[in-house]
Write a protein that binds this DNA or RNA. Structure first.
Length: 299
DNA sequence: AAGGCGTGGGT
DNA sequence: TACCCAAGCCT
């Protein structure tokens, strides 16, 4: 049993990551001094399954146009979906608009700072609620995203991959390491994510640049191949309903008036799949209309 | 609780 | 070229 040495090794991880982050944090919009809680919330929604580089320009445009929840709530869902452009998963734009409405109506236009109120907002799940609480309000709650999970899997557990998400266990592991000082906790939350995103990447990790390489359990074990349960793989996109939905949404975004049913038909040859995709969009509230009237974004 | 849900860059 | 991957959420 190497309990004492193991505890010491783990305890060394957070301060190293925090020190590394202080020197290596990228200059990102949401790290600017005075960046609003609303800005943090918008950025976190945009960053759900979308790379940083694609989010930055869209985020700045969005906040220029809608600098507060009230401003967005006063505009239409259609405008939100249009401004989302091709960021992907446009249901996020719809949810963000609905969240702005809820913040405007239920929270006097102020982004909530507690987990329960945040979780009650559409499009905000466990990760995003924690991220807003931690990064917008400095709450010392553990924040665990896919990058942090990979860092913990490797450095702490000696596994090359994180495997399927296990939220409770992942949060407990992060909580174990989280510094008690709120400022340090915030830096460790952000630093672990940054490390996973820029150094401890999924493929070809750059261990020579890693601040905790000599503390890393995976490295110490000789980088054993991962043999645990595999994370679920995302379905093929080409030819999928998602692709058809994407084509229809693009047509709706780019049209001033309703898009005629005949125009929709030209977007995809397979009628069954096309109708299924359209029905899904209607059900999701991303499109409204009927065959006779044509289809448009929700007002 | 497994699978649906966009899009585009990297290898 | 195909496939992988990305600050998840929802049902």
């Amino acid at each position: 049993m190497q309990g004492a040495g193991e505890e010491e090794r783990r305890a060394s991880i957070p301060p190293r990551v925090v020190a590394w982050f202080a020197q290596n944090a990228r200059d990102l919009p949401w790290r600017r001094p005075g960046f609003s809680a609303w800005g943090v919330l918008v950025s976190e929604i945009m960053l759900q399954q979308t790379p940083v580089a694609r989010v930055i320009p869209r985020l700045e445009q969005w906040l220029d146009r809608w600098p507060t929840p009230d401003a967005l709530a006063a505009d239409s869902p259609a405008e939100a979906v249009r401004a989302w452009q091709s960021l992907g998963y446009p249901r996020r734009a719809l949810a963000l608009h609905a969240a702005a409405m809820a913040i405007s109506e239920r929270h006097a236009g102020v982004v909530p700072d507690d987990m329960d109120a945040l979780l009650a907002l559409p499009g905000i799940g466990d990760y995003t609620a924690r991220a807003v609480a931690a990064f917008a309000y400095g709450r010392p709650v553990p924040v665990v995203d896919v990058n942090t999970r990979r860092v913990l899997a490797r450095a702490v557990h000696g596994q090359g991959e994180a495997g399927p998400a296990r939220t409770r266990a992942d949060l407990a592991a992060m909580q174990e390491l989280l510094p008690s000082d709120p400022t340090e906790a915030q830096a460790f939350n952000a630093g672990a994510m940054e490390l996973g995103q820029t150094v401890c990447v999924a493929r070809s990790p750059r261990c020579e640049a890693c601040p905790i390489a000599e503390l890393c359990a995976w490295r110490a074990a000789g980088y054993p191949a991962y043999t645990g349960p595999a994370a679920p793989r995302q379905a093929r996109y080409e030819g999928s309903d998602r692709q058809v939905r994407g084509l229809i949404m693009r047509a709706l975004r780019h049209s001033d008036g309703p898009v005629p049913a005949e125009a929709i038909e030209l977007l995809w040859p397979d009628a069954v799949q096309r109708e299924r995709a359209l029905a899904g969009l209607l059900r999701d509230g991303l499109a409204v209309g009927a065959p006779e009237t044509g289809y448009r974004l929700p007002d």
